[in-house]
Design a protein around this nucleic acid. Structure first.
Length: 304
DNA sequence: AGGTTGTCCAACCGAGCCTG
DNA sequence: CAGGCTCGGTTGGACAACCT
């Protein structure tokens, strides 16, 4: 190791700790033991000459020095990865069109895409937010290069996809499940706590019927013979979150899309049980540019 | 010059301990 | 009890010394 400067492995571990919020969580990410991560942090702190994290039983939080180092570390690691890919002839350039559902980790997705873009500075990234049904339907068109859609685990389209065998017309290539989350009924925290219960008909905050999750919710309530009224229609998940927070009604969201001021409805409401949701990275089209295939692999590593 | 051996040291791990 | 730290043992890479 150099007598001066920063060690790349330690910086990667440092970033993993920052992102995981704990030493043990970071250990899983970087495939080391908790003690090894702790020792690497200690060495990095000794080298820098000041503590980078405040330790507690809830995990770790960056000190001002730690927060300062995060930005440097991200740039250094991204530049290193980009240089490595470039030397292997895997550097991405040109235009890449990404279609993504807005249910996917709304609070993190911008940072993930920014990190992807910084790893591939020559890439011109074009991101479009679309309903999952549109993304799935466009899988065979030339609307986008890489698609990320949401599917309910017990929904027929999902089952069909899972059952697809290589060589079959519809599912010659399998999509990749990159994340699985619970779906939950949600409403404004204040409304739920103040009233304790809501009376039917259930006021629903929904997206347009092009959203398969919202169609699913309506079908579920109708099947359970639970009266509802659509109290607010939003154009996207961000609008849905605002309407929920304002107490305009209840809706169904995946865990990572639950925003501030919104929380799960209590079981006492008796709302129907919801399935899990999966985020699918659509497979490449036949004859796809190898660069797009590589971009898909790189994105899958970041999106998980 | 190239191969083998011995030594050093950094990195890792698991166990046990500490702390709030 | 969960999460982090410390310690002792193990492993593997780097390097010098030695041998063929």
């Amino acid at each position: 190791m150099n007598a001066r400067g920063l060690d790349l492995a330690q910086l990667r571990t440092f970033l993993a700790v920052t992102e995981a919020g704990s030493v043990s969580g970071a250990a899983e990410r970087v495939f080391l033991s908790q003690s090894s991560v702790s020792e690497q942090l200690k060495k990095l702190e000794e080298r820098i000459g000041q503590p980078l994290f405040v330790r507690s039983k809830q995990g770790v939080a960056p000190t001002p020095a730690g927060a300062k180092l995060v930005e440097h570390a991200r740039r250094i690691v991204a530049m290193c990865d980009a240089a490595f890919d470039d030397m292997l002839g895997r550097s991405l350039d040109g235009e890449l069109r990404l279609a993504i559902t807005d249910y996917y980790r709304p609070h993190d997705v911008a940072a993930i895409i920014r990190r992807f873009a910084s790893q591939h500075p020559r890439l011109r990234l074009h991101v479009t937010v679309l309903p999952s049904a549109v993304i799935d339907a466009g899988a065979h068109d030339d609307m986008f290069d890489i698609g990320l859609s949401l599917r309910m685990v017990d929904a027929p389209s999902s089952r069909a996809n899972r059952a697809a065998t290589p060589g079959s017309a519809a599912g010659a290539r399998q999509s990749t499940v990159i994340r699985r989350e619970k779906l939950v009924w949600v409403g404004a925290r204040e409304t739920l706590r103040e009233h304790g219960s809501l009376a039917p008909p259930w006021p629903l905050v929904l997206l347009p019927s092009t959203c398969q999750l919202q169609r699913y919710v309506v079908k579920l309530l109708e099947r359970a013979r639970m009266p509802y009224l659509i109290s607010h229609s939003a154009s996207g998940v961000a609008g849905l979150q605002l309407a929920l927070k304002a107490g305009l009604g209840i809706s169904c969201l995946n865990e990572s899309a639950i925003g501030d001021g919104v929380e799960a409805c209590p079981a006492s409401f008796g709302l129907p049980a919801l399935p899990a949701a999966e985020f699918h990275l659509l497979p490449g089209r036949p004859g796809e540019n190898p660069q797009v295939s590589h971009a898909r692999e790189a994105l899958a590593a970041l999106l998980g």
